[in-house]
Design a protein around this nucleic acid. Sequence first.
DNA 1: GTCAGGGCTGGAAGCGCTTGCAGAAGTTAC
DNA 2: GTAACTTCTGCAAGCGCTTCCAGCCCTGAC
Lengths: 350, 350
Amino acid sequence: MAGIKDVADKAGLSVATVSRALSGKSNVSAKSRKLALEAAGELGFVPSYHASSLASGRNHNIGLVVPSVHRWYFSSVLEGVSATLLDAGYDLTLYNVGDQPERRQSVLNDFLLRKRLDAVIAVALVLSDDEIQQLLAVHRPIVGIGGTLPGASTIRIDDERLARMATDHLIRLGHTRIAHVTGDAALNQDFKLPGIRQTGYQRAMTAAGLDIRPDWQITADFTVQGAYTAARRLLGTSAERPTAVFAASDEMAVGAILAARDFGLQVPRDLSVVGMDGHELGETFGLTTIDQDPRGQGALAARTALQLLEPKSGSDDVPVPPETDQEFRTEFVIRTSTAVPPDESGLRRA
Amino acid sequence: MAGIKDVADKAGLSVATVSRALSGKSNVSAKSRKLALEAAGELGFVPSYHASSLASGRNHNIGLVVPSVHRWYFSSVLEGVSATLLDAGYDLTLYNVGDQPERRQSVLNDFLLRKRLDAVIAVALVLSDDEIQQLLAVHRPIVGIGGTLPGASTIRIDDERLARMATDHLIRLGHTRIAHVTGDAALNQDFKLPGIRQTGYQRAMTAAGLDIRPDWQITADFTVQGAYTAARRLLGTSAERPTAVFAASDEMAVGAILAARDFGLQVPRDLSVVGMDGHELGETFGLTTIDQDPRGQGALAARTALQLLEPKSGSDDVPVPPETDQEFRTEFVIRTSTAVPPDESGLRRA
DNA sequence: GTCAGGGCTGGAAGCGCTTGCAGAAGTTAC
DNA sequence: GTAACTTCTGCAAGCGCTTCCAGCCCTGAC
């Protein structure tokens, strides 16, 4: 383990100059820089992370707090964050807090606050006021994705409006009997998303003067299999069947499509299905959906955090003010899972 | 930001004693410990990570290197590792190197080697000899999952044997026309898994004296949608169709099932399908598969790494020797996607 | 030839902890 | 009461860098 001292000796320079040379500082002559670089190369010198962090106060390490790493949305965000940070030479420390509150507490206390992170990116995290205070108290940039974090920069999409759009799409096609597959709120007490999307659905229905039937709002756990089971119940039981389904996620939409197939229902002839997310699976199923590009959201969050840390760097980007709300661009993708509703007892055939 | 000095002053103790008290060292009187703890609590003191790491040489930080974070297998492993480390009070630094060799190099050089990690867990990583040397040179525990890492502890499953088992299962049911959906090797040059599973398939076929038709070995990218597309081609084109498919992953098996449905083929009546992995989706589709519990593999890898770092800790576990190969327990799960082959032109009906 | 000014450099003081060491204090056995 | 220990405690020396500061050398202007 060669230290900077060894490099200095080998290069015939002082430790100070070597440090400056290796970290690309300005006040070093070309000759010294070359010497230092050569010596470092030959010795395989890599500066100690902790020592330089301790001395400089900078860590080049950003924390990411997620409630899950396994669900599609989160792993997509993670991927976006990870790629951006790696490219910028930053480490990513991952806190997969799950839905256990006690683990969240310990993460906040024992990890995040230990001054080891330059910034924190929190995904879909709803914190108590106390917890927000704790976080803000460390005076590090915090950027939130899809959660509510007063006092922090956030990247978000307008879930309610988008859910309304998706529902409206069905309404405009002529559907009146529209069901909704929502996520399970109990899955994660802090995950308010399902409720918000459901509200969007309900508002769209109300605005169009349509019935909102409680038994047509079914709950699943954001997975294909969960929605499949729930949708089988919906489509199998009801004497009067919905002609369209808006699912709060693409995976659940796919589950609904699979359930429909089980009953011999063709999509979109007998049942229109709209999803939400932009999952890769949607393409295979011709799913109409709203693509929210979570990978892009993660990348943007990471870029925002980096910019907060190094305002000068980069080109002439507009600097991001510390408290800022960026609405992320989404895309309505119309494929083949939606169509006009089936003829009702031959009425339209006439 | 209260420092340890402040705590010492407040408690009327020396910095040294406070340090020992807070880190649970033995040689501190109950009284001093109480004083230190109280003072630290009141000041909200949290020791600086970098300072303590620098001074002690321990980081409480383990690195995880994965080729992807988005694919089911890897996010499952990640989840297992993450939960175990968090519980043990360790940080997890994530290196999602993707399949770009240059990113891998920079990760190895600039990150892993900077003495900031106590150990490294590498998933499905095939390294060059040089790279292995580099890694071993840091003298830190290295645990590999599913890759080949001579000189490191590894957790692995015997992919070839398992693939053979899966294929044999079909053969024993009476199938002779068995196709294979393999993963795309080009996806990731270092990812040898698809080839190994394919070998298992081929060996089983050969051992049973069955034909291995090149056009029945189709390639997909480990996703449902990829296998779906590939399987449509397989099932649509062939005048003579296979009666069974062994897919190198559950997601691809599901893709094959979906493709079969498109052609009106019923599973398992017209086509038997076996997968491999233990994906949650398998349950919904009644998929027969080999469950390899990647989450458990991740947890085991993390525990192995921790044990390598702190041999004394834990109960009377058998200590893990540095170079050790643990074969992970898998489970053959027989569901409803496999059955005897369909009657051939009524022969068996007689 | 002198002097101001700028570019580089090295010394040294930390960054905030951990820990070896030696000594103070408290115990026990005679 | 003393010797011989055992516990605790505080001092101080780092851990391996970064960076302030002062000083050196070299230009260029006068």
